[in-house]
């Protein structure tokens, strides 16, 4: 479904010269697959996601989605950002209905569909609230609902739970997994949290940094539907977490940082 071939990104540095952020990334993601990109901060994993989203142009290589080359953003790829990026002048309902109105739905239809989605993400009763009145976890639920609303085939999630406290983070991981079990969208999920990646994914792509390259692709052969309390006791889960943690441990890099 997503074909990334030879993607490279260099940034112009302020004082002149260039910085190679990601280098020669090849990755194919099948329809309905949940793939995480795992790596230390600064490894270019978010940049790769932005390139797939069409928000950032690659310096080399190409990305295609369902056989069509990506040249810019589109409603087939819905982003969810760590920063939530909600429209603060819109209510919860206005945010979730926004993409539907853009897609040409009437106000009534858009509002009805948005109201149902708001209930799905557990925010029934908050329709008239403004983003500033919500907690971080609630904001991210709104952001997820806003993206799901316009029905993208692919979800691009950029450390979506990175700004949340540990408890909220676990709850939202569970809820995301439940949502995903229902409609099995293709998900590209960027994170630096090993357990999160193992818990959610079919495959985990481990990246190195400076430059960002793919170090390993690990299949997460754990049964679904997954429950966190069962997984924590599962030796296979423990093994995967330990292996991945060792893989992203990079002593010389850490010492330099």
């Amino acid at each position: 479904m997503i074909a990334i071939s030879g993607v490279t990104k260099t940034f112009q540095r302020r004082g002149g010269g260039t910085h190679l952020a990601i280098d020669a990334i090849d990755l194919d993601i099948a329809e309905g697959e949940f793939v995480s990109i795992l790596g230390p901060s600064g490894c270019g994993k978010s940049t790769l996601l932005y390139i797939v989203g069409g928000f950032v142009a690659p310096s080399g290589g190409s990305v295609s989605v369902s056989g069509r080359a990506v040249t810019g953003p589109g409603p087939d790829r819905g982003p969810v950002f760590q920063e939530f990026a909600l429209f603060p002048w819109k209510t919860v309902l206005g945010n979730v209905a926004y993409g539907l109105r853009e897609a040409g739905l009437s106000r009534r239809d858009a509002d009805a569909k948005a109201t149902a989605l708001i209930a799905t993400v557990g925010l029934k009763g908050y329709e008239t609230f403004y983003p500033k009145e919500l907690s971080g976890g609630m904001k991210q639920r709104v952001a997820i609902a806003r993206t799901l609303a316009y029905g993208p085939a692919i979800l691009l999630m950029d450390e979506p739970f990175g700004a949340l406290d540990a408890h909220t983070r676990l709850r939202l991981q569970n809820e995301l997994l439940q949502l995903w079990e229902r409609d099995r969208k293709t998900v590209l999920f960027v994170t630096h949290a090993v357990e999160e990646a193992v818990f959610l994914s079919d495959r985990v792509v481990v990246m190195t940094r400076q430059p960002g390259r793919i170090k390993a692709v690990v299949d997460i052969d754990l049964p679904r539907p997954r429950r966190r309390d069962e997984l924590l006791l599962n030796p296979r889960y423990q093994r995967l977490v330990i292996d991945l943690e060792r893989m992203i441990e990079d002593p010389p890099e850490e010492m330099r940082a």
Binding site: F55, P73, G74, P75, P79, F87, Y98, G99, A103
Partner: peptide, 22 residues
């Protein structure tokens, strides 16, 4: 916020529309 604009463009909103509506 750049990502607010990205969110809008993912919904299919064009550049001039983003200026007026985002």
């Amino acid at each position: 916020e750049e990502k607010m604009l990205w969110s809008a463009s993912a919904m299919g909103m064009s550049g001039p529309a983003r200026l007026a509506r985002i």
